[in-house]
Design a protein around this nucleic acid. Structure first.
Lengths: 156, 156
DNA sequence: TCTTTTTACTTGACACATCAAATATTAATT
DNA sequence: AATTAATATTTGATGTGTCAAGTAAAAAGA
């Protein structure tokens, strides 16, 4: 069997759509995070730090480190250091739990809320620009397809 | 106007689908890369290193650093160090260009090709598992929707 | 109650991304 | 030809993610 330019073997149609779907998701995400970083970082925080702040604001109450990690789909070590930097900037504060003293609760401070307020409009505008080519029906379909993918993920 | 649990303002339906689409893409990509990393890293290379090797194999000829960067949608500095590590592992080799001596051409070595051959089947299998819940029609729709998003991206 | 296991983090080591600044070299200009 | 501008990479500093180990405290079990 002839090989195709160094590729080891031809893919079936099914394999091809699988690969294209995966590559499409990964590439699109890469491009999107770059755009969001470009809007957010000039304000002195990174995209991930922004996400933590939004989670804390959305929760409306202090959250333990692990809970933030769960919502960020991310391991604890990364979260700890992310919180370190946010704390150093005065955007959040951490308090050792009293009930369970292993936990560290994290709350957004007013400076953090103020920063989020500044970013709300530009970020919402960028959300919209990112999916501008899609009508409402297409957006809903996209959201649905991605949810199906996540739900069916092996070991997840 | 009452605020919703710390959130600054209510989103319109349109804004909400935009945000959900973006978040969905980013989260799904996160989960997917984790799965691929879990399959690839036990073989001694990272997901990004694997991507570089696949690009080099697919090209079928040595590529300059910048060209690899373009295909990875990534800036040059990152590529340089990625190539450093692949070179140290003996999976690629670099040669200073003769025509334009600023360029550094990068070629995959036989050890790199052998490693890719080992990974081809498990990676294709994972591609398939990742989108297993979707039928062919849905995969094609997903690929199309993501392509529309990328095509319409501001400044891209 | 004392030991063992399981959490919730934290810290150390390493991969990787980006920006900014340096290098080397080629292209454009004057 | 000499100077200036643009290009291809590399290096240094910083933020972030992961795994492996360590610490502290709560939960389980004997």
């Amino acid at each position: 069997m002839k090989t195709v330019k160094g590729s080891s073997r031809r893919l079936t149609a099914r394999e091809k759509t699988a690969q294209q779907s995966v590559v499409g998701i990964l590439q699109t995400a890469d491009e999107l995070s770059r755009r969001f970083a470009a809007v957010i970082e000039p304000h002195g925080i990174t995209l991930q730090q922004f996400n933590v702040l939004r989670i804390l604001r959305g929760a409306g109450e202090p959250l333990p480190t692990m809970e933030i990690g769960a919502r960020m789909i991310q391991k604890a070590p990364g979260i700890t250091r992310l919180l370190d930097r946010l704390e150093k900037k005065g955007l959040i504060e951490r308090v050792r739990g009293t009930d369970d003293r292993r936990q560290v609760f994290c709350a957004i401070r007013s400076a953090g809320l103020a920063l989020l307020r500044q970013l709300d409009a530009p970020v919402a505008a960028l959300d919209e620009r990112c999916v501008a080519p899609l009508g409402m029906g297409q957006r809903e379909r996209l959201i649905q397809l991605l949810a199906s993918v996540r739900k069916g993920l092996p070991g997840g």
